[in-house]
Write a protein that binds this DNA or RNA. Sequence first.
DNA 1: AAGCAAATGAGAAGAGTTCTCATTCTTATT
DNA 2: AATAAGAATGAGAACTCTTCTCATTTGCTT
Lengths: 138, 138
Amino acid sequence: MDSSELKRAGLKATLPRLKILEFLENSKVRHMSAEDVYKALLESGEEVGLATVYRVLTQFEAAGLVVRHHFEGGQSVFEMEHGEHHDHILCVRCGKVDEFVDETIEERQKKIAKEKGYSMTDHSLYIYGVCGECQKEE
Amino acid sequence: MDSSELKRAGLKATLPRLKILEFLENSKVRHMSAEDVYKALLESGEEVGLATVYRVLTQFEAAGLVVRHHFEGGQSVFEMEHGEHHDHILCVRCGKVDEFVDETIEERQKKIAKEKGYSMTDHSLYIYGVCGECQKEE
DNA sequence: AAGCAAATGAGAAGAGTTCTCATTCTTATT
DNA sequence: AATAAGAATGAGAACTCTTCTCATTTGCTT
Ligand SMILES: [Mn+2]
Ligand SMILES: [Mn+2]
Ligand SMILES: [Zn+2]
Ligand SMILES: [Zn+2]
């Protein structure tokens, strides 16, 4: 296990943190709720408390290792930070998540913030729709 | 009290619904949580149950009288529907909410949905920042 | 005015998340 | 390698926001 990433983030290399980080890095699914992470770890035989999963994900977020999203549906969704900021388009039927980057939108947002007198700190953009697959069914 | 708006929406003109609708229409604050509405009604001496406020706001939403937003912070926020779709920019310090419309962004979103093969149903865009007022303090 | 379906409201319940605190683990120091 | 001190963990309680349940009340039609 590679504890250097945790150390670099200023976090002690504890077993739960290592397990969660490893899981996030190796998972084929990019966007996961705390519960998702918790269950997946349980199923692979790892003993980690749910409270710890929540705590650690929040710490990872603060450390910039992970990004939190608020998709519709109430629960926070996390994904490994991988450099480039991006936004999301989600299927309201099957839950599929796609990512995109649009410089025009990014620029426009900055412009709007400036016009309104705000110093922009963040933004969130979600497009909802029915994905190609789900359109076929029916 | 004007019950025609409710009738038109296919809703019985009950007292709680009339009170809530009247309050939303006359409130100077445009964006309010269910709790906000509930408390405001209590303070003005109106007896309405919290469960009813939640229920009625959801019905108003389904009827298109009201729009629901998911601002950061967990609770749903409602506002009277007034024709034009718009997005929001919010102050992370004082909670101020401003509205804007940007056709370029709207178009881009449609384009992205099409490119990704989605039939777009909805979208949500929030810009977060520090408003002019709050920038002065400090 | 009567009858009936629909709506209400109080409180229980549910979902997601955070908190509490006794126990365990990590890391620095011998 | 053993020790000490502080940090992290995990079980469950607690919390927030929202929905559900169901006995009672209300609105609307006749
Ligand atoms: Mn993503
Ligand atoms: Mn608005
Ligand atoms: Zn789909
Ligand atoms: Zn402000």
